[in-house]
Design a protein around this nucleic acid. Structure first.
Length: 775
DNA sequence: ACTTGGGGCGCC
DNA sequence: AAAGGGCGCCCCAAGT
């Protein structure tokens, strides 16, 4: 692998260390810890950590090792190379992998003691780096030697440690396994922290080794570099051991020809793991490492502009409030409790205060039965009160300012001057990415102001590429509906085609533009009105909701939906089959075989629990003694009773009627737990998981292909952002045309390696996100 | 002082 | 009768 390293990073000596640490020292004189018993001084926290570590991990003192001798490390790496595998984990001062500090590296390979190699530890008193640790250069050299000798690195949450090794030790790690992501593939419905997984799947002895969470040993915000070396290794080395053991547990499940894998029906999942998710780790790591440029000067201008807007929006609201000051005064007398919750001036950002203002002061009513005191946009605007628009305007500006304009520049790395957001590869249970710190997947798109903050370096252009109708194409493929597939194969506009069949109007009359290029408002209307139907089916929406989206009556929507299913019968079949599969097996699968387990699909409609109360019909004083419990199944429910109430609950419409049935059952001595809601939720998730998850399969595969494409590599193309059906990269200005062409080819071919439907991909070249196109 | 849950809202 | 899939972040209010 010929990935270029940057120049040797500057390393902290520790002397100029964290301002936050100094702050804490300064603060400690002021703070009192008497009340809570929680130590607030550094030395107090360390003393507590010592006590806890010694009691919980003291027995590991001789089983683990702290490496501070060069030859010892060389021997360790020799063994790792000999074994061909090594678990690695890193400890850091904070969760910041770029502007923070490393504390040490944990290693484990079979035949050796789990090891901690401290390197960034400092004296809590003087903040000077401890001299008893190996030099950074030695650790870098040895890790690089292992990497060069193709050691298969086992990690948990690999991307984090890859960043740490890269930014603080200048070593690029090639991950061989990630127990976090693998864990998600094996069961997305469980917590995936290393300790929890290890305790659940690997711990052999209840009393002996017990994985202890960081938070239980260390006070919040403690800098691991200050933990003394004789303690640090007891906690840290365990992580590498746990990662190794968890890998050994997971490996058979995700190895294609292993009987365990076959028996568990994980063959396709294992392929997904090796062919997409595992390579994706490096793809995403490199993407995050590259980061995004932010136009900070422009951000400042935006700050000024929107701050002014916020102030004026606030004024408008308060002007409206001042008009009803007399009513507020009256509230002080009528409902003092309510009044006391109001600040002066009223905080528009507080839902509580806003609700009091709208419902108690102004006496307005909500149009939403489900939230009688709601303050959401729809409810407020429906009130038709002059204050409504002002509140919404204030909210809009406030959101933009606090979530984007002000927050994003703050997260720019001091070290690189770029924004290095996180892209969480298994952020969603469907397999989709999520993004955080900051979330680059919810940057406003209609308002171009914010997106224009995202720029590229001098001499570069931004290359945005997005799949056109990715999810509907997945629906066409997964359902195998010929009419739907035909629409894409003949290159027709899907929505126009659907509108044409549903409204029995010629196809050409359902397009936004006529052949001569002029706008056809009627056509646009028809086309847009069927979008909610397709989307609704993919989201598992009901007819009422679709009707609202379409702007027609519920009846009309039902007719259109029924018509849709009539014309696209395999879509209807697909929805039913998908749900039935989930009921039978407890999961659904994407195009690549990614699983979404939906255990709620296998719930009984209702659960009956016998109520042993004096008033109930089945009360029997003889069974009231606890000794009798052994022989009697206290939860026994006759079948006929179950079916009787299941049927009654099914027929009962609305909460009121259901409550009546529940009361009736209670009289007969049974408490009903209604699972109807959970099952309905799961039913909606079935189809959506398949479509959303298959789309994720495609985008992830495309990202890997783009990342590894030799032509794109030589053209200097780099990924920087992904937003579900969209991949954003950059390249040198002069290569823009070649890159655009190639990106499109790769995106389309990647999709077609997964779904057999023609795919369309639009590529745009610009200098900034949503900037004007560059020719 | 810090965490948690809810409301609200930005995106696909 | 009502029925919206998947996220993360902001703020507030209440709980520890």
């Amino acid at each position: 692998m010929s990935r270029t390293l940057f120049k040797v990073p500057t390393r902290e000596t520790g002397i100029d260390a964290d301002k936050s640490v100094l702050d804490k020292i300064a603060k400690r004189k002021k703070s009192t810890s008497v009340v809570t018993g929680t130590p607030s001084t550094i030395s107090g926290k360390i003393a507590l950590a010592r006590k806890l570590i010694e009691s919980k991990l003291g027995h590991l003192r001789d089983k683990f090792v702290s490496i501070t001798d060069e030859q010892q490390l060389i021997d360790y790496i020799d063994k790792a190379i000999q074994n061909g595998k090594c678990a690695i984990d890193t400890e850091t001062a904070s969760l910041d992998t770029i502007d923070g500090h490393i504390a040490g590296v944990c290693l484990y390979t079979k035949g050796m003691k789990p090891a901690y190699i401290p390197c960034g530890h400092i004296s809590p008193m003087t903040l000077v780096r401890l001299k008893t640790q190996l030099d950074y250069d030695v650790i870098t050299r040895e890790l690089q030697r292992a990497e060069d000798n193709c050691v298969k690195w086992l990690l948990h949450n690999a991307k984090f440690d890859m960043h740490v090794c890269y930014w603080y030790l200048n070593v690029l790690i090639s991950p061989f396994w990630d127990t976090n992501i693998a864990g998600n593939l094996l069961n997305e419905n469980e917590p995936h922290s290393l300790k929890v997984l290890w305790n659940k799947y690997c711990k052999e002895d209840d009393d002996d080794a017990q994985a202890v969470k960081f938070n239980t040993l260390f006070e919040k915000g403690i800098d691991f570099r200050m933990i003394p070396l004789d303690l640090a290794y007891l906690y840290a080395a365990f992580d590498a051991l746990m990662t190794w053991e968890l890998y050994e547990f997971q490996e058979p499940f995700l190895t294609e020809n292993n009987p365990v894998c076959i028996d568990m029906g994980l063959t396709r999942v294992s392929k997904l793991w090796h062919n997409i998710e595992l390579p994706e780790i490096t793809t995403v790591f490199d993407m995050e490492r590259e980061g995004t440029c932010i136009d900070t000067k422009y951000a400042k201008e935006l700050h000024d502009k929107y701050t002014k807007e916020l102030t004026s929006a606030e004024k408008v609201v308060h002007l409206e409030i001042s008009k009803v000051q007399h009513k507020i005064d009256r509230l002080a007398v009528d409902k003092p409790k309510m009044y006391s919750k109001l600040s002066n001036p009223i905080n528009i950002g507080s839902p509580t205060q806003l609700a009091i203002l709208l419902y108690d002061v102004l006496g307005l009513t909500s149009n939403d039965k489900n939230s009688p005191r709601g303050t959401g946009e729809e409810i407020i605007l429906a009130m038709n009160h002059p204050i409504a628009k002002a509140i919404i305007a204030y909210r809009k500006v406030s959101k933009l300012l606090s979530t984007y304009i002000d927050a994003i520049p703050q997260q720019i790395s001091k070290r690189t001057g770029k924004l290095h957001a996180s892209f969480n590869q298994y952020g969603a249970k469907t397999g989709r990415f999520s993004s955080s710190d900051p979330n680059l997947q919810n940057i406003p798109s209609k308002n171009h102001d914010i997106r224009k903050m995202f720029i590229v370096p001098e001499g570069y252009v931004m290359v945005g590429s997005d799949y056109s109708q990715q999810e509907p194409r997945c629906l066409a493929y997964m359902s195998g509906d010929e009419s739907l597939l035909d629409a894409y194969r003949t290159g027709k506009d899907l929505y126009a085609l659907i509108a044409s069949t549903l409204y029995k109007v010629p196809y050409d009359e359902c397009l936004e533009f006529r052949p001569d290029g002029t706008k056809n408002e009627e056509g646009k209307k028809r086309r847009n009105s069927v979008k909610p139907v397709v989307l609704g089916i993919m989201y598992g929406r009901g007819s009422a909701s679709i009707a609202e989206q379409m702007g027609v009556s519920k009846k009309e929507a039902e007719r259109v939906i029924a018509d849709f299913f009539k014309h696209y019968p395999k879509v209807a079949q697909f929805v039913m089959d998908t749900q039935q599969k989930a009921r039978d097996y407890g999961f659904v699968e994407t195009a690549m075989g990614r699983k979404r387990r939906l255990p709620d699909m296998q719930l009984d409609e209702i659960e009956l629990t016998p109520q042993i109360t004096a008033s109930s019909n089945n009360f029997n004083p003889l069974f009231d003694d606890e000794e009798d419990d052994d022989d009697v199944d206290m939860n026994f429910v006759p079948d006929d009773i179950y079916y009787k109430y299941a049927a009654k609950m099914r027929k009962a419409w609305g909460r009121k009627q259901k409550d009546v049935v529940k009361q009736e059952a209670l009289q007969e001595g049974y408490a009903i737990k209604d699972n109807g809601g959970k099952i309905a939720d799961a039913e909606r998730q079935c189809v959506n998981s398949v479509i959303q998850g298959s789309s994720a399969d495609i985008t992830k595969h495309a990202m890997n292909q783009l990342h590894r494409d030799e032509e794109l590599k030589s053209l200097g193309y780099k990924l920087i952002i992904t937003v579900h059906d969209e991949v954003i990269g950059m390249c040198p200005y002069e290569n823009r045309h070649a890159v655009a062409k190639r990106v499109q080819q790769v995106m389309v071919s990647a999709a077609q390696q997964i779904i057999d439907v023609p795919m369309k991909c639009d590529v745009e070249i610009s200098y900034k996100w949503y900037g004007e196109e560059v020719a």
